[in-house]
Design a binder for these strands. Structure first.
Length: 582
RNA sequence: GGGCUCGUAGUGAAGAGGCCUAUCACGCCUCCCUGUCACGGAGGAGAUCGCCGGUUCGAAUCCGGUCGGGCCCGCCA
């Protein structure tokens, strides 16, 4: 395929035909310049009045018309060259011109620094995709897929496609249900992930499986989470009993994507393993951004005898030391206080370290020894501010974890050229739901509890950890995996602890349980969220920026108008009756 | 389901009780222009300020509601 930027300059003196869109037209009355654009670049066409037919057409041309032009590639005279475009040393003197298609004025601004709002861009996505950035995202994503596929193949993984028409699963996200004409009253579901199928592939004797898999979840979207559908690099390995083997197998790919592919620096070559509990205590979250420190410092013991009621009565007191934050104005601190409150804090206490003095509304409530202990443990120095969280441990971690991010953002501590990776390991198998006071699965029920049957029989249920691991990239969860439970007995026990009987487990996971009875090999795997990982690698903070046709923040495709109402006849055929309120 | 926030010509912004008969830039239309490159010049059209209601002598501006967008919580790996 001919491309304007790469081929034209090499063809000086030759007659060429070029096709593309009109990027801009400059009509000098007796001479018309046209910047013609294709997916690779721009070249200047010159139309002279001597070529009367072409000139007449050129006068009608407007932005984004589609042209075919034939002419001679000519070296531009000195002084007429344009160093700003790749082809700026040449131009095409046109002798034949045809308008392949016309264009109305565009409803969005494509080629300006100020871009139109997202709603309009999504409505006219086919125009938005003409922007160089969007072109780049699509081709770059193709390159990422190619790298992933070749890496997986080099490592003896086999891509197997699994069903899109699958079954509703009781755990996890809400399903998209698919009715069927031939099965009245019954429904397929779009898979939330190929989880059960890939485990069944292990039983089926596939040693290493992978798939760039479409996954579907009917949950509310976020800036880093697409509505409805997204893609995973999903993989599973048989005869693996230690998650470490999965992690080390996939690390070279991720490192290659960070460095060669995205051109970023790895913060650490050795990717750290961080136990869940440690992540929560140090960073207040299970997906910490490790590009900066600002760790949460435990002060509960140091302040247990304080006279300051807020600290004294709290289950947990922690602090973060923000370097140089004494420059913050009162109103800026108020804004951070609002953030803290939005996460459940009662307020935001702080100490400002200026010279030898400690300035703070709360300093008068604290003894000299307590202030010293705070300074020592947080390492606060001149110019720093120590912010406190005092509440239940859960709330303190949540509030300070959020503030840690906000402060890092405010003080520019998130280096866009650096990628910090970590594996979060040892997630709790069960968790207590605050509201219902009921125990539930911490992650997914298919993971193997560390210690197996013994652990389930003997230990305090809430202390059991799953052999389960997430990869975190600059504060985003980009991968989740586990050593799977391949033992029917453990399976019954795992659900039994939550009060589900064997009949329930058999009803919901019959195929998998059945399969496990016929010599299931131990297996483990994981799945990378490729949309989100690509977003982080590209330095974007909105996942819709890197997807061709995303739903908007309300789950609507404003371009195609989906979802939409359907004909009553279609519903009837599917044995579906609209309810009264519809 | 909840919280915060935004909505002004085709597009992006300004205006924050009377100076608004709403300003600017890009785009659009007409005319002029043979070396521009986001060409230049002259002129022109285009907005019931998301919608409904209220306060006021007077509302783009204040208040209430409503619709739509964005971010977050819940939810979600």
């Amino acid at each position: 395929m001919r491309t304007l930027s790469t081929e034209v300059p090499a063809q000086v003196g030759q007659s060429v035909q070029v096709k593309g869109w009109v990027n801009s037209r400059r009509d000098h009355g007796g001479l018309i310049f046209i910047d013609l654009r294709d997916h690779k670049g721009i070249v200047q066409l010159v139309v002279h009045p001597e070529t009367a037919e072409a000139f007449k057409l050129a006068e009608e041309i407007r932005d984004e018309f589609v042209l075919a032009a034939t002419g001679t590639v000519t070296e531009r005279e000195e002084g007429l060259k344009n160093p700003n475009i790749e082809t700026g040393s040449v131009e095409i003197k046109v002798n034949e011109l045809s308008i392949l298609n016309r264009s109305e004025p565009l409803p969005i601004q494509i080629f300006s620094e100020t871009q139109s709002n997202e709603e309009l861009r999504l409505k006219y996505r086919y125009l938005d995709l003409r922007r160089p950035k969007m072109q780049y995202m699509l081709t770059k994503r193709d390159e990422m897929y190619a790298r992933m596929r070749s890496y997986m193949n080099e490592n003896q993984f086999v891509e197997v496609t699994t069903p899109i028409l699958a079954n509703s699963s009781p755990e996890g996200a809400r399903d998209f249900l698919i009715p069927s004409r031939v099965h009245p009253g019954k429904f397929y579901a779009l898979p939330q992930a190929p989880q059960q199928f890939k485990q069944l592939l292990m039983v089926g004797g596939i040693p290493r499986y992978y798939q760039l898999a479409a996954c579907f979840r009917d949950e509310d979207p976020r800036a880093d989470r697409l509505y409805g559908e997204f893609y995973q690099l999903d993989l599973e390995m048989s005869f693996v009993e230690d998650g470490e083997e999965v992690r080390t197998t996939m690390e070279p790919l991720v490192k290659q994507l960070v460095t060669d592919f995205a051109g970023k620096k790895l913060l650490q070559d050795d990717i750290p393993r961080l136990p869940y509990v440690e992540a929560m205590e140090k960073y207040g979250t299970d997906k910490p951004d490790l590009r900066f420190g600002m760790e949460l410092v435990e002060l509960t013991d140091e302040l247990k005898d304080t006279e300051f009621g807020v600290f004294k009565n709290a289950e947990c007191v922690k602090a973060i030391c923000v370097k140089g934050a004494s420059s913050l104005s009162r109103s800026q601190i108020d804004q951070f206080t609002e953030v803290a409150k939005s996460e459940g804090a009662g307020g935001l206490a702080y100490l400002t370290f200026e010279g030898r003095e400690i300035k703070s509304p709360i300093a008068k409530f604290l003894k000299e020894s307590e202030l010293k202990a705070i300074a020592d443990k947080t390492g606060a120095a001149d110019g720093d501010v120590v912010f406190f969280g005092a509440d239940t441990r859960k709330v303190v971690n949540k509030v300070l974890g959020r503030l840690r991010n906000e402060f890092a953002e405010h003080f520019g501590l998130k280096d866009p050229d650096v990628i910090a990776l970590a594996w979060i390991v040892d997630f709790p198998f069960y968790e207590m739901d605050d509201k219902t006071n009921q125990m539930d699965f911490g992650h997914n029920p298919f993971s193997m509890p560390k210690g197996g049957l013994d652990a389930l029989n003997t230990e305090d249920k809430l202390s059991i950890v799953a052999d389960q691991y997430d990869m975190v990239m600059n504060g985003y969860e980009v991968c989740s995996g586990a050593v799977r439970n391949h033992n029917p007995e453990v399976m019954y026990k795992v659900f039994g602890a939550l009060g589900y009987d064997e009949a329930y487990v058999e009803e919901k996971f019959g195929a998998m349980l059945g399969a496990f009875k016929y010599g299931a090999p131990p297996h483990a795997g994981c799945a990378f969220g490729v949309d989100r990982m690509f977003m982080v690698l590209m330095g974007e903070d909105n996942i819709r920026e890197i997807v061709a046709f995303p739903k908007n923040g309300s789950g609507v495709d404003v371009m195609m108008g989906s979802p939409s109402v359907v004909e009553e006849a279609q519903l009837k055929e599917l044995h579906i009756k609209p309810t009264e309120e519809d």
